[in-house]
Design a protein around this nucleic acid. Structure first.
Length: 485
RNA sequence: GGCCCGUUGGUCAAGAGGUUAAGACGACGCCCUUUCACGGCGUAAUCAUGGGUUCAAUUCCCGUACGGGUCACCA
């Protein structure tokens, strides 16, 4: 690396952070940071029609939350500002004029109607729709005359009529296209503003950007970018085009899918670290077998060569599994602090052993938002069907369950209130199992059902009894006996 | 439709001429002094397809199919 790496994330403030976009930001950030380079935030807000109140804040907040901290940007400034595109509007026209001067661009006076007409004809005759070069042929005098008359105009890029253009992508290698397939795209619009493509090239150059990570949709316009760089005599940045994140094989993950934005994922209870970890993996594969990476670790691990050239389908299951892994890796205290608000959504009573509940919950919680439902039996025993008592593998049925509960009841009743804890209950019940000469499940499966009324619970019967306390446990067992009798 | 790109198990994917074609999620099975959505151990994949090149092709080349992208005075 001879040149200091400078990368940029250049989102439009739409008020919505698509995870594909976030992932681009991530990769962009990682490339800068792993090369000890600079990560720049540039807001591309030139589309007034799409302006959304507070949208810039969404970008700031997302980046801050995920730890993708920029070194230069609108709020903190930097040597190549301004970093808000709408504040740079004055600089582009001169560059376009420079191109006109050097013969790489030209004034075009065609009206919208004329263009529409032209495209219509092209479509009907099966031709590709592109500008027909009408105004290319205008004489210098003619141009001057119309300019003087104040005829509205745009400035278009003059694509060579023959030959090919080759550009290099770090992932795809060299891609060559026929110049004849390229359109004389507009550089400066009739209102004097630059088009996105033009502003992008100029800004990237002015900001000294060395690597551009962007979506695959720009692959087809990349040759035109290259021609622009050539016309200016500038060195193009290294391109890395990344594939889309898909909902399924034929549809991109879209807003309406409800999984598409960072905020959607947050709302579903996923942890920030897990989200970053998962999207890093969507379209990129680490060298080794480890898949769990912090942002810090990603800086070391990430490599452009591990990026994938084909679209990746977003898999909520995998995200969930990674989130579960993060939960399991939390310390007891951290997990407790994070889980408590969720537990309290359904568990209001205070007379329980919360630590036992938290401890049994941690390995079984995959996402925080699932917790309220997981512990909703604590406050009150739900209505349940006796069918729950039937378990093939445990060899239990309603009849054996009744016997089991009848055996359990006096044993638990005999435990003094102040000795009621997990160890004691365990000790007493296992003594009973030995005395009766039965399998653990024969006794404990019915207990779990009676005490929870649920098919799945965090922890087994013993833990649950410890959580809800003696009085409630006894009451629920009695209720089970009554139901089974 | 033109142009560009892609195609390894249900999903994410490693592998880059000769491999038992990794690993993870999911599924399934078994195990575990208590169920499970914990843990442990296993099982399942002839690499879209046809043709080349080669002693040898999932890996290179061409075609086909399928999928995606793009063809704006929008970003």
């Amino acid at each position: 690396m001879d040149k200091k790496v400078r990368t940029r994330f250049a989102p439009s403030p739409t008020g919505y952070m698509h995870i594909g976009n976030l992932r681009t930001a991530l990769y962009t950030y990682l490339i800068a940071k792993q090369n000890d380079g600079t990560f720049i935030l540039r807001i591309e807000d030139t589309d007034q029609e799409r302006y959304v109140e507070g949208a810039t804040e969404v970008i700031y907040n997302t980046l801050r939350q995920t730890g993708l901290i920029w070194d230069e940007g609108p709020d903190i400034g930097g040597p190549v500002g301004p970093y808000i595109q709408s504040e740079r509007m004055g600089i582009f026209k001169d560059y376009a004029l420079q191109l006109v001067e050097s013969g790489h661009a030209y004034y075009c006076f065609c009206t919208k109607e004329e263009l529409e007409e032209m495209h219509k004809i092209q479509q009907v005759s099966g031709q590709p729709t592109k500008y027909n070069g009408h105004c290319r042929k205008l004489s210098k005098e003619e141009v001057e005359k119309r300019l003087a008359e104040g005829v509205p105009y745009v400035i278009r890029q003059k694509i060579p009529e023959e030959g090919t253009t080759t550009f290099h992508d770090e992932l795809y290698g060299d891609i060559t296209v026929e110049n004849s397939t390229l359109d004389d795209q507009v550089l400066i619009k009739a209102d004097g503003m630059p088009t996105y493509n033009f502003a992008n090239v100029v800004d990237d150059h002015l900001m000294g950007i060395t690597h551009v990570v962007r979506g695959n949709e720009y692959l087809s316009s990349a040759p035109k970018y290259n021609l622009l760089y050539e016309a200016f005599g500038w060195e193009p940045p290294k391109y890395i085009h990344v594939e889309h994140i898909m909902k399924d094989a034929q549809h991109k993950l879209a807003k309406r899918d409800g999984d598409a934005s960072f905020q959607d994922l947050l709302d579903k209870g996923y942890m920030v670290e897990a989200i970053i970890n998962y999207i890093a993996l969507l379209g990129w594969a680490p060298k080794g077998e480890n898949e769990i990476f912090s942002l810090e670790e990603l800086k070391k691990e990430f490599s452009i060569s591990g990026l994938s050239k084909s679209p990746a389908i977003f898999d909520p299951m995998k995200l969930k599994a990674i989130n579960a892994e993060y939960i399991r890796r939390m310390s007891f205290d951290d997990f407790k602090a994070a889980a408590l608000p969720y537990i309290r959504q359904t568990v209001k009573r205070e007379d329980i052993d919360i630590d036992v509940l938290v401890r049994t919950l941690q390995p079984r919680a995959e996402v925080f938002v699932d917790i309220p439902e997981q512990v909703d039996f604590v406050d009150a025993l739900p209505e349940y069907d006796n069918a729950l008592y039937v378990h093939k593998k445990m060899k239990t049925n309603e009849e054996t369950a009744l016997s089991a509960l009848n055996e359990i009841l006096p044993v638990l009743e005999a435990i003094p209130e102040n000795e009621w804890n997990e160890e004691k209950i365990h000790e007493e019940l296992f003594a009973l199992i030995e005395k009766l000469g039965v399998k653990n499940g024969w006794l404990l499966w019915p207990l779990r059902v009676a005490v929870s009324g649920k098919q799945f619970t965090p922890g087994g019967g013993i833990e649950l009894c410890a959580v809800i306390g003696k009085a409630d446990s006894i009451e629920r067992i009695k209720k089970g006996i009554a139901k089974l009798s």
